[in-house]
Amino acid sequence: MERWFLNASTLCFLVGFAYTMFALGAGVARPSRWNFLVMLTGFICQTEYLHQRGQAVGRCPVTNLFEVLVFLSWSVVLLYFVVGGTYRLSLLGTFTAPFVFLIQTLAQLLPSASLPAVQKVSAGFWAELHAAVSLMAYGAFALACVAGVMFLVQERLLKRRQTGGVFQNLPPIATLAAATQRVMLAGFVLFTLGLIGGFFAGSARDAIKMMAVSVWLPYGLVLTLRWTHRYSSRRFAWLSVAAFIVALTSLGALSFFHLNK
């Protein structure tokens, strides 16, 4: 039954994805209540899936790469709702649906997706908190990446004077630059809290700690450069994308280490 909820949520994001493609193609991409409803339904299904999965494994369901990616996509959608009305009214939601659909589909294609849920020993409060908060930070980084891509699209259209179609429906570049910065900062704070939790848990290997720091440092550097106005909004948007690729690579590596622990 738990898998039914996961499939239903993936289907919801697929519908959101299809809508985005259609809207972009037709040049009528605009926020709609319908799109919001699809996202909300997908989120409810995701939550129920993670709840049931958590009960089945007897701990926070982040025990393999499949679960990690599902938890990550859940975090992205959660943050999309939490970030607030301003961004929900923008096309952030429209761009979030395809992103979440791709992550969740990738998760379901992994070999670990077909493994049955097995009751596991709890890793302890701090370790589970560390994992959950860190993944939520990844969700924020993903959302910052989405906002950064939207900035780059809108900026390119402005420079090239292509002011029809999707340009009309994308938010102002100043709003997108501010959103990217704010969401990345939220992710950075969460990641820092996750790191502290990880050190309290004390079970992590040095390699894992190194990898966590390898995500924390680039984001810290990018944000510092941004605050000191060393980087333009365009470079900052590119960095939000690049940093997320680094973070995703590190997430894959972290999962590998966890599995081999």
Partner: peptide, 18 residues
């Protein structure tokens, strides 16, 4: 959409600065 030079400029300004 904007149908005059002035309103086109204003719309663009809002797309840049909000």
């Amino acid at each position: 959409g904007a149908v005059s030079v002035g309103s086109a400029a204003v719309d663009l300004a809002e797309k840049i600065f909000g």
